[in-house]
Structure formats: C-alpha cells, structure tokens
Amino acid sequence: MKKFYIVGAGPGEPDLITVMGLEAIRESQVVFKDALVSDDLIEKYCTNKVQVNVGHRQGTSSDVGLKIILNYIKENANNFDVAVHLKSGDPGIFSRLSEEIRAVSTLGFDVIVVPGITSAIGVPTFYGIPLSVKDVSRHIAIVTASISEGKFNASSLGDALKYADVVVVLMGSRFLKQIARLSQSILGHSDMLIVENGTLPSAKISLLKDAENLDEHYCSKPSIIILGRKLNEILSLGGGFDEYRVYAGYNK
C-alpha cells in the first residue's frame, strides 16, 4: 500500500526535526512543503526529492495546500510510492490535520502522522524561556489569533488571558495592536515577548512594554507572541530579559 507521511518539521532549525521524520523523508520520492518549513531543512534533507510547494501564508485560504496535494496525487499516483507532507512545527496544532488524513486516505494511501516540535513550546525552550515554573506558572494556553476569513480571535484569546498564567499566541503578527489592547483591558498591561523566525539564525526576540503603542507593521515575519499575567515573573526566573532587549541570531 502506498504511504503518505504527515511530518512535523519543527520550529525552523533543520536538526530539530525528529529521527522518524528524517526516515520518512529518506523513504519518500515526493515532498510537499509548507510555506513556513525552513529552506535550510529542504536544502539539507530533500535535494534529491520531487518538491511541491503547498503552503499558505496568513491571509490566504488554508484549503489551497490540501487541494494541491490531492490534485498532484490524482495526476501522479503511478509515479511514486511514498510521499511526505512537511508541516512547520507540529502537524496537530492549528493545521487541519484531521481533514488531511481523511482526504488522503480516501485516495488509497496509508496515512502516517509524525509529530514535530511545535513552535509554541519549542521556541521559548530553545532560548531558555520557561513557560511553566513551579509555584508560579501552572496554566499555559496556546491560542491562534486568526480564525475564519482572517478575523481576529478575540473571544478565545480573551478567555485565555483571564484564566491562564501564560498565553502563547500563534499567527498573531497581523494583530499586534488588537492583542495588546485586549491584554491591557484584561490584565492592566500590554507587555509581550515576540519571537520572530523561530529557531533560525535570523531569529529576533523582543520584550516590549506598552505594546499597544506599536506601529501596526512592527512585526511582519512568522512569530510567536508570549504574554499573560505571569510573563515578567517567568522571564526573571528564567534568566531575565531587560526591557526592550533584542536578541538576534545565536551561536551554534
């Protein structure tokens, strides 16, 4: 039976993909690549594969990628036995995993899901930023800022800010002002930590105060946003970031 792997590629750094994910790539003839999968990973592990770009960015329909995959399979099924869909982070986090499993399975493929390191957890950990700290932070929420038709997910984020100690926001770079205003109204401050470009060498970390005054185009790159009532406390316990400190790149 033909196989179709859905593989979590991790948060950017090529070597953070799992061993099982690498084995799936090596076994495959075709690699479908999402937009946020790093070019470094593709160059390191996928140069001898047929590569098909299927990713979408914020503001575009998430249906596009799956349609490309299904059309490619229907037109080229006789030309390969194993395919991999590389998805950034973990394929089970805000990525319509169940729809993809059902759709590809109906075409006669054995679908195998390989977990990956989600940026929501892996990126802060990569930089030594603890999301949970004993007796300080015991409730972590992961929220997508963008819902259907590109609307701001104010309801879910508002609930998370009310009840969680730390909130990690994905797909939020277009909504910085809205996120900051919501935080200000619920927590009384709009402090946030923004990590751009995940674990890539081009990554940048910014700790911002009064973020509601930011220019709306402050952050246009793939980012995670960390905020919440325990943000400053966990940062101080994890080594600390001075106000407006910016970290760019890292040494391997």
Rank of each mutant, 00 (worst) to 15 (best):
K2C: 04
G10I: 00
P11A: 08
P14D: 05
I17V: 11
I17P: 03
M20Y: 14
L22E: 08
E23V: 09
F32C: 03
K33F: 11
L36E: 00
I42M: 10
Y45H: 08
C46A: 14
N48I: 09
K49S: 06
V50F: 08
Q51M: 10
V52Q: 00
N53M: 13
V54C: 04
Q58M: 10
G59T: 00
G59F: 02
T60R: 12
D63Q: 15
L66M: 06
I69T: 08
L70S: 05
N71V: 03
Y72Q: 11
Y72A: 06
Y72T: 06
Y72K: 04
N76P: 05
N78F: 14
N79L: 14
A83S: 03
E99G: 06
E99H: 12
I101V: 08
T106L: 14
G108L: 03
D110Q: 11
V111H: 11
V113L: 07
V113Q: 07
I117G: 08
I117W: 08
S119C: 10
S119Q: 08
A120Y: 04
A120V: 06
V123R: 03
T125P: 06
T125A: 15
Y127A: 02
P130Y: 13
S132N: 09
S132T: 14
S132G: 12
V133E: 12
K134A: 13
S137D: 06
R138P: 07
H139W: 13
A141D: 12
I142F: 13
A145Q: 02
G150C: 03
F152Y: 05
G158A: 06
D159P: 04
A160F: 06
L161F: 05
D165V: 02
M171Y: 02
F175S: 02
Q178L: 02
Q178D: 11
I179K: 01
Q184W: 12
I186H: 04
I186A: 05
L187P: 03
D191S: 12
I194Q: 03
N197D: 13
G198P: 00
G198M: 05
P201F: 09
A203S: 15
K204W: 12
I205Q: 13
I205V: 12
I205G: 08
I205W: 13
S206Y: 15
K209M: 14
A211V: 03
E212Y: 14
L214D: 04
L214W: 08
D215K: 13
S220H: 12
S220T: 15
I225Q: 01
L227M: 15
R229G: 09
R229Y: 08
K230G: 13
L231Y: 10
N232T: 08
N232S: 10
E233F: 09
G239P: 10
F241C: 09
F241I: 14
D242I: 13
D242K: 15
R245V: 13
R245M: 15
V246W: 10
G249T: 05
Y250L: 00
N251E: 15
